[in-house]
Amino acid sequence: MQELREVLLNTLLAAGLYATMSYGLAVIYGVMRIINLAHAGLMMLAAYVTFALYTRYEMDPFLSLVVVIPLFFLLGVLLHRFVVRRLPRTTGTPTMQSLLLLFGVWLVLQNLAYALWTGDTQSILTPYTLKSVTLLGVRVGVPNLLVFGVSALSLLALNFVLKRTYLGRAIRAVTQNRDAALLSGIDADRLSAITFGAGTAFAAIAGTSLSTLYAFTPDFGRSFLLKAFCIIVLGGMESFTGVAAGALVLAFLENALAAWTPIPTSFQDAISFTLLVLVLVAVPQGLPGIARKVARWRASS
């Protein structure tokens, strides 16, 4: 019972971070049909910026989000303006060209981090990094709780923007039916720029959060990129509730396998990958696909 409670709580906490990480990828994919491989590099860079703000100005990592979010939004817009926008327009499926282009951006970001901060492993140690509290009879690290809080807030904000503003409606419209949305007069270029900025900002929130939990190097972020990719595939690529569900499933699998099976934690990263392959092969539509199948099966029986 205690163990179950532990697994469930840890799942929830991890899922918040995973969802934040994945929305940045999902929103860019939805609007622009681009798989942003630079996402990993942006998360890594945000971790380093947080680190720099902490060591240089003693700014609390969570407080530094006030600087990091606008900074990375701007970076995303500039990246779109000077690099991504030059790609030929795509409709439908993402192109190899865009994937490899953003792969190049990722490498440049990595080298930037090597040049500025060397390849040494860094970590952020705040007074509360090692503190923990007891919640529902489970000991939980304070940073994990704070990260969950940040994730919850940013997801609420995203939900508000998507549901209640013109911008959000435009993003959802382009995601659902690109041609129809563009025909009804949405400024695709401006929307793409904002989307890329927002996706980058979400990568930065995830990166700052990760920096309070893990040590990092310029090579940081690859396994998290794979996790995020696994989640959006699981969530059905375009569905926003699907992404949240995907994050919960992956987080639960990781925690459950760590708690109840003898699989060493060093193989944990392989879980998301295995799940990714299984999902892509068995249910390419992800969780929404399964939900539809179940609904059809119940209707027919």
Partner: peptide
């Protein structure tokens, strides 16, 4: 220490 710049830059 800057070969990733070169690889990434070439790719871009």
């Amino acid at each position: 220490d800057s070969y990733l710049f070169i690889y990434g830059g070439l790719l871009i």
